[in-house]
Amino acid sequence: KCAQPRRWKAFDGKITEMDTQNSLRGKELLEIYRSINTRGIPKDERTSVLLTLKWTVKEHECKLTQEIVALIDREIDLMSREVKECNLEGLRKRICTLFLQYIKIPEFNPQVAGLIKVPQDPLKLYKNVYFCHSCEKYLAPTEFPIPANSHTIGRCRSCYQLDNEARQREAYFKYRLILENLRKSEVDYQDDSKIVFLVQLPDMQYLIENIWNCQSALSACSDLYDLVMVRWDKQHEWSPWNTILLTKEEADAHLKLCNLQKTYEAPFIYRIEQKHIRAKNYFAQIPVMSSFLHRSSNQSNAN
């Protein structure tokens, strides 16, 4: 990647390429690296490649370059003594490994700076690392979602995502529990209820969250483990437009009522009916529900 030229697309769709000073440097180092990795070349060519590598790394004086130069001199000396190539394999691999380290240093290969995630300067690393108290890891600032009005560093993105997934699984379990309890109660009526078995988990989630706001219609209790869905009018089968979300105790009392109009106040009944209308509008978009909606409308007109 360090040897690749910069590319951009023009207005006519043509790709324009441009070599920069840094990309040319990367290309030069890449060619040298490929050359020293080439096997089976004559000794004079190998010597020429090693000398090119030697003068390239000698541009920068450091412990790494000194070690590379020493290894190059050793290989040239051993080749002059007619040492077999199989005995030089370890030495040549060492030269390749050290030169690869050389290539990865931005001071010697500026183009690589944009490809290395960990800063080479330890001081930069210490200044730009934060501690996540959830996973107990030290991470870069980009790994933390920090609101504009926040004064502290909270959990990292991974921990937030994991927490959201866990909460979503827990919420799905609650909705599944409500749906299963509803289906069991409908079976007990023994009046051939069908709609409840057509409703799927996402439908139940929408119904509870968006229509009933995850709370009891009477007490506003929001503990989903204590909430159940029952028929609003127990004379008709359960449907999203004939239901009410209540606590278990409230549901038991509700199902014992004989006359809803006399028991509940008019504003409360109106509010429930509005929720039923919203549910009808939503489930009318589901083809399998359309026939039940028409049947429900006919029953209402007959009454």
Rank of each mutant, 00 (worst) to 15 (best):
N37H: 14
T47A: 14
D44C: 10
K54P: 03
T38V: 12
K63Y: 09
M79R: 11
D73H: 06
E67W: 04
L71M: 05
S48Y: 01
R39Y: 00
R34H: 14
D73V: 00
G40M: 00
S35E: 07
L64T: 05
E82I: 00
K63D: 13
K43I: 01
T52L: 11
D77T: 02
S48V: 02
L78A: 09
S80A: 12
E67L: 08
K58V: 04
V83G: 06
S80R: 12
N37E: 15
A70E: 10
E75M: 06
S35R: 05
T65R: 01
E45F: 02
I76C: 14
C62V: 08
T38H: 12
K43Y: 00
K84H: 02
E59Y: 00
K54N: 10
D44E: 14
D77E: 06
L53R: 03
V57C: 06
K54L: 12
I68N: 08
S35T: 09
C62Q: 08
R34A: 10
C62Y: 10
E59A: 05
K43V: 11
H60E: 06
L51S: 09
E61F: 06
L51R: 13
W55D: 11
K84A: 09
Y33A: 07
P42K: 05
K43T: 01
S80C: 04
E82R: 05
Q66P: 00
K84M: 02
K58C: 10
D44V: 06
C62S: 15
E61I: 05
R81A: 09
E75S: 05
D73C: 02
R74L: 11
S35C: 02
S35G: 04
L78E: 12
E67N: 10
G40C: 00
N37I: 07
N37D: 14
E59I: 01
E45Y: 04
K84E: 11
I76F: 11
Y33N: 11
E67A: 01
W55F: 11
W55L: 06
K43E: 01
S80Q: 13
E75H: 02
T38D: 11
I36Q: 15
Y33P: 00
V69Y: 03
R46P: 03
R39E: 06
I36R: 14
